[in-house]
């Protein structure tokens, strides 16, 4: 059981304070999603709790130990972080990338043990990349590339994985592909997942625990169905919206209001069920 807890955290870049004072507990074994408008501090918070950004004040504690006082490799065995938009050097193969995830388990002399080899193969298999192992990462499609990076954090073999916007720059099919993979990792392997997502509807679908931020403060935290309301969306994003149940997952589906509704919805008012409404699969 690994519980990640931040207490009275103050995070800042140079003199710009992003998060003045924030305390949060990340529930173990769940998918936690951070949402909020651009610049609300969600990525900063993720960096703060993963030791990428040193807090000006406050502490981050994992299993009772301050993450800034632990040996770096020991923390990396328990907590993996995938930064936003990582790039692999030209020509690096998928296998080489994924094998790099074994770093915290290696030493100066033991650089490639049997276990390293085994775990790397398994990470490739879980992410369906075994057939692409010797392909350079820069020749893969966006979705496969993101899977390769996730495979690297899997090879790291930590109970908790933090991801900063793992679906940016991916088209819709790959977004779902990546999110389904993370969902499987949580359900089948009990990984605790913490990620920043832009799309509130994706967040509602996949999160067990949703954290909504505005201006460095937590506006709401909890199970999406319990906390996502029109008022909450207005408080976080500053937009009016209608919320209906997602027809597939029954989670909240946020439909923003739009100026287009005045002109376009009227033209279809004669046809209550438009011809494009169809459900596949």
């Amino acid at each position: 059981m690994a519980e990640l807890h931040a207490q009275n955290l103050m995070l800042a870049y140079d003199d710009t304070c992003i998060i003045p004072n924030l305390s949060v507990t990340i529930p173990d074994g769940q998918i936690t999603v951070l949402v909020g408008a651009n610049g609300c501090g969600k990525s900063t918070l993720l960096r703060g709790i993963s030791r990428l950004l040193k807090p000006k004040r406050g502490s981050v504690v994992l299993d009772g130990a301050d993450i800034w006082k632990m040996p770096t490799k020991q923390l990396a065995k328990q907590l993996g972080i995938l930064p936003q938009g990582p790039t692999a050097p030209e020509g690096l193969t998928v296998h080489e990338l994924v094998a790099q995830g074994r770093y915290p388990h290696q030493s100066w002399l033991q650089q490639w043990s049997r276990e390293d080899e085994h775990v790397t193969q398994e990470a490739l298999a879980i992410t369906n990349l075994t057939d692409f192992a010797d392909r350079p990462v820069d020749t893969l499609s966006g979705g496969q590339r993101q899977r390769a990076w996730i495979a690297m954090t899997l090879a790291q073999d930590s109970d908790t994985i933090l991801l900063d916007e793992p679906t940016t720059f991916l088209d819709l099919a790959y977004q779902i592909d990546v999110l389904d993979l993370l969902h499987d990792l949580n359900v089948a392997r009990g990984k605790t997942i913490v990620m920043v997502l832009h799309d509130l509807n994706h967040a509602c679908r996949y999160a067990d625990n949703l954290i909504a931020l505005r201006d460095g403060h937590i506006v709401a935290q909890g199970y999406p169905s319990d906390i996502v309301t029109a008022d909450m969306v207005y408080a976080v994003f500053g937009i009016a919206c209608t919320i209906i149940p997602d027809p597939i997952t029954n989670t909240p589906l946020v439909i923003p209001s739009s100026k287009a509704m005045n002109s376009k919805s009227l033209t279809n008012s004669f046809n209550p069920q438009p011809s494009w409404v169809a459900i596949r699969g």
Binding site: T72, A88, L97, G101
Partner: peptide, 23 residues
């Protein structure tokens, strides 16, 4: 030659390398 792997790590970017426990 023994430090070669550190270069592989740095090549993934500072944040990724830190996340993997590199100082």
């Amino acid at each position: 030659f023994l430090c070669a792997n550190w270069l592989n790590m740095l090549n993934l970017g500072d944040d990724t390398a830190k996340g993997l426990g590199m100082r």
